[in-house]
Amino acid sequence: MSSTPSLIAIGNDSLRESFGKALSALADEFPKVVVLDADLAGGTGVHHFRKSHPERLLQFGIAEQNMMAAAGGLAATGLVPVVTTFAVFCLRAIEQARLSLAYARRNAKIVASHPGLDVGPDGGSAQALEDLAAFRAIPGMTVISPADPIEMAKATRAMLEFEGPVYMRTGRSPARRVFNDDHVFEIGKGQIVRDGSDLTIVACGVELARALDAAEELEKENISARVVNMATIKPIDGALLKRCAEETGAFVTAEDHNIYGGLGSAVAESLAASHPCPIEFVGVKDVFGASGEPEELAEQFGLTGPHIARAARAVLERKRKA
């Protein structure tokens, strides 16, 4: 269990900025890393890397398919390519990621900024709500969605230390701080960030902070909610989920993604095989997003702390009846 049971502060750093700074800071330690950009360095956070290591920032122009497959070629020569663009444009190049990166088992990293409703005003066309599902379905692809700037920095290191293809989500908007500097990130491992006994809320990305809001709210009603940070969607931490199922017997999952195919589905698949119990899914309910500020969208599409708390009450009702 982490030493940080609740929110620390609302920082100004977005996950993308945290990623960009971390990548720049790690560049000398990982000399084989090259960063691929499709004219979005200012948006993905890699402008930091461009400033510190301009000779290792490879410009591909607005042509994501070529960039994604070229990453396979760069990796084949022994470099470690980090492909950066928006999450929706990763979807555009997913077949390149499938064949030229995953099928060829290249040590290449895809870092996707601007996922989910967190994109905000750009609207529905720009809000990737399908990326976790799509990349999770590619054999051998590791899928990560860190929750806060501290975890993002640690996940960036872990991703570079890891051998194999990785898809990692960052985020556009200023992200709330959840973790202290002593947070330990390990690919494939979830953590209980707040203990509880009545149910378990499993969250990733920006939804972790909202899950902690929900736990606070539920505590006032004498409901003890455990909160698990599941930053690695694939491979999912099945052992932790099984333990939580045995100890709490009910789940809510929360993600800034379609309820189909992402974290909720991964949790359900795992529990179905280990310890079936009631689950409620908080996420975008199989519709596209829209323009608005991220918090307004979270409210309208049902992703806030109170929505998670509502799902928690519903799942407890099912647990009682079961």
Partner: peptide
């Protein structure tokens, strides 16, 4: 490299050519 989806091999070759030059 693995091929079979048209258009990808040439991009992989471009990446290889860039990687060789960089090194």
């Amino acid at each position: 490299t693995s091929t079979g989806s048209l258009g990808q091999g040439v991009s992989v070759a471009v990446g290889m050519a860039m990687g060789l030059k960089l090194q």
